[in-house]
Design a protein around this nucleic acid. Structure first.
Lengths: 190, 190
DNA sequence: GTCTATAAAGCGATAGAC
DNA sequence: GTCTATCGCTTTATAGAC
């Protein structure tokens, strides 16, 4: 990670990995210095707001990525089946087939949750809405679509926790495969 | 929480709530003193190993509770359907219908994960095995039972994350209701 | 068994030289 | 833009009086 002159743009992803693996409290400035190869001076030059600003920009970055690669397709694609398929591909690649943990989920526990409550809630709320819309277009009732969407998001989040806890990323891949079948099957007639 | 003489037995649950809500890093001794009403002197008298020992005993306590109230029934009850039903009731009441977070899940992220890797993995592994056994007796194939068990645990963990992130505990209750239907329906013929 | 005082280290953040 | 030095505070943990 040695560098001469840092650019803000490629700094944020590195920060993301630090918060992802250590959590907010655990991501000490010492760990951030180590990961970025920058001293406190440089870090505070880029992020005058300190650690909190760093985390906030990382969250923004994640939100933008999901907006572009997951939420927008779900809401606007002409083919809802294809959009859900793409969502699961994107999710699998984003979470590196289960060897990466969800940053938003990681920040949703402990004291960080209060600090970033709005951003965290927004992330899950937007995702739920987008997936619900796609499921409705697939023929689900309002209630059924919302339930399936909640279950899908819970499965993804929970499978990440399980995969990491049991140190078996494949568990996540399998869960995504089952989730794909579940989401793409025809809705039950109501 | 004011008290005159503390007893070790009713100290552990209080510690559990602190770790649950603040995470391991966030659970400072100051917060623990506040919650227990005890000074450092008393705390180190009961737990010479400090914070790590406190967390370890809390994890033990949780493991024992699940062993008695969830795992054992799943493995030995004559009626697997009834056992699964009881499991979901126990889970709902343990997690206070979604307003309580999973301690094991909370410790599975960040640096605490390395410290308690064995205990965390054991918790999820035992639960998976117990639920898989019940599902097999319900008629599922080995593969189908394992998949359903993983999905069920992921749904529970993920629904807790979602419920807390969106500050809507009911989301957890609904997820448990759907999970109940899913687990108790007849296995697909293979 | 409980307290206060204190040590030693780590924390986030700032100042100022270059 | 990057660094080092340093501040002030909090952290975990220990010592010793009661």
């Amino acid at each position: 990670m040695a560098r001469t002159v840092a650019e803000r743009a490629d700094l944020v992803p590195v920060l993301g990995e630090v918060f992802r693996t250590h959590g907010y409290d655990g991501a000490s400035l010492a760990a951030i210095e180590r990961a970025t190869g920058l001293g406190k001076g440089s870090l505070y030059h880029f992020f005058p707001g300190g650690k909190e600003q760093m985390a906030r920009e990382v969250l923004d970055d994640v939100a933008r990525w999901f907006e572009a690669n997951v939420f927008a397709p779900l809401e606007h694609a002409s083919d809802p089946r294809g959009a859900i398929d793409e969502m699961l591909d994107a999710v699998d690649s984003y979470f590196r087939s289960g060897s990466r943990v969800c940053l938003v989920g990681a920040l949703s526990l402990g004291d960080a949750r209060d600090r970033f409550a709005r951003e965290i809630a927004g992330y899950f709320r937007t995702w739920t809405a987008a997936l619900t819309a796609a499921l409705r277009r697939l023929g689900h009732s309002r209630k059924s679509a919302l339930g399936e969407a909640h279950d899908a998001l819970a499965t993804i989040q929970g499978a990440l926790v399980l995969a990491r806890s049991l140190d078996t990323p494949d568990l996540f891949v399998d869960a995504i495969a089952r989730l794909r079948r579940r989401l793409l099957r025809a809705p039950e007639p109501s």
